[in-house]
Amino acid sequence: MSLGLEHYLVLSAALFSIGLYGALTKRSAVVILMSIELMLNATNIALVAFSRYIVPVLLTGQVFTIFSIVVAAAEATVGLAIIMAIYRSRETIDTTKIDLMKW
């Protein structure tokens, strides 16, 4: 069985689900951020795979991935800045304790 688009897609789905699990269960905001990076990587794999197998010459998927990486970098920067700000004011980044907005 030669390598096809589906292989990459399933790998992407697996990585995404793992990241999803981490993002929804971890209490440390830093680990949540790491999990989100995993999910973004998973989508990047899917994008590049689509680019490779569906538009191999146009490279549109790869261009899209570049922008995705840019946004991911921005997200990581701001996310970590927020984490630092929260840590400074509340001495914790445990998300179960940061729930002032609830009823």
């Binding site: 971890k26 209490r27 440390s28 680990v31 920067t77 984490i83 445990d94 179960t96």
Partner: peptide
Amino acid sequence: LIILAIMLTREVERGSLSN
């Protein structure tokens, strides 16, 4: 960046807990 944040917030001592 992430490692920097881990260092600054002393998350290593607490470990990665789950909810």
